[in-house]
Design a protein around this nucleic acid. Sequence first.
DNA 1: TGACCGATTTCTGTATACAAACTACCTTCT
DNA 2: AGAAGGTAGTTTGTATACAGAAATCGGTCA
Lengths: 241, 241
Amino acid sequence: MDRQERNAQFMRALMDLRSLVLEGEFVPGDRLPETTLAERLGLSRTPLRQAMDRLVDEGLLERNETGGVRVSRFSMDDIRDAIELRGVLEGTAARLAAERGIRPGLAEEMAQVLDGLDRATEGELDFKAYVPLNDRFHDLLARLAGSSVIAREVERMGRLPAASPGAFMQGQELIPDFRASLRRAQWQHRAIFDAIRNREGARAEALAREHARLARTNLEYVTSQDPSLAERVPGLSLVGE
Amino acid sequence: MDRQERNAQFMRALMDLRSLVLEGEFVPGDRLPETTLAERLGLSRTPLRQAMDRLVDEGLLERNETGGVRVSRFSMDDIRDAIELRGVLEGTAARLAAERGIRPGLAEEMAQVLDGLDRATEGELDFKAYVPLNDRFHDLLARLAGSSVIAREVERMGRLPAASPGAFMQGQELIPDFRASLRRAQWQHRAIFDAIRNREGARAEALAREHARLARTNLEYVTSQDPSLAERVPGLSLVGE
DNA sequence: TGACCGATTTCTGTATACAAACTACCTTCT
DNA sequence: AGAAGGTAGTTTGTATACAGAAATCGGTCA
């Protein structure tokens, strides 16, 4: 929690509106008039407009010619490209971390996260433990190059619609072979960190890129094999055409 | 321009404040109280706050613990990383354009820009013509992959402080060997487009990355050889330590 | 002299008022 | 019937009022 009171209305507007949109409460193209929505969310237009600006920046909403906002419509290509970009940026973070070397503190933290992920995937799958550890891995990876600029932009990519590292974790316990898929992911986590420690920049970059493509595989599975899962992936209800 | 009247105060706040900060009107760390600044810029707090939010997002300003904003302090490493990231993203745009193929319309447009750049660099250097054409090249490159997601994020990278393709063009007519440097840049422009047309994705990516490093070379020249030039590069006045 | 405390001022977050632009609907005229 | 125009109702952009938090400053007391 950033600041509990300082920003309360704005934070509430941001969270609530983002949830509404991601959960498919609106249809792509729907206009979101400020007055109506402010009343519905129980706050004034000022913090709501701030939240709208932010969500426009994230790509979830878009501005129409007269200044109002509407819910964005995504194509599968948009999501595919967002995932690709996350891979590219995480790859860059990994490469730079390898080239520059990493701080011992971060290395230690990363080792603990990886051990935790091992425990969550070996034997019986512990999904509840896996998800937050996976988030921490990706958060650490963003910061591993020791650059605030890199960290900021990597994290930003994870906020693009359906591109976050955990975006396809929601309904995956239903995917056959899911445990094997997470084991492969964890093997990649280890390989990425190994490459970074060995100062193998190119290898680290390639591995991180490939790792992001797991999300793309899941995207393709969800849409082609089991469209009923699509509702459980936040944001996928906005895919049109 | 976008909309002349619709957003007038916000646009004015954004442009004016960005100019003030980039031109070094403030010292890094300076607080920017809303009331005072709104009065100075001749508008109300509402559009000014919008502009501040945007500039915080761009990295030019940062928020302090109590919600106010102050002017950011950059290190050389920050600028170096921002340039690196621009190279990575332009490289990705180039690679994807190569892999996916490009629309004939864009190819034609790109050919014209490259011809114009040739004319501006052969014989007597036409600096006034070069700068806007160079901007158009980078704008086109961002859109060449045919993805709005890619285009948006590539363009965003160019707005990070001192990372834009033209950031170091300001004082460069004073740099010795400047004409030769622009000829090398133009040679790279041609090579990037050639790789894209030949569907050589890896080559296109590597070339675009290397092209961005010209900015880094210029950064190092300016800071080590001729610090007096630093004042003429927008944003470089914010580099502290 | 120095530290602590309180009052005053400043600053930010939020709500709201107001005006200009836009939309939509209804009427009227050809 | 269809087009044009006007009017009422939304909707957004901007300014401003107000409350609570933070900072500042001065004074008092040890």
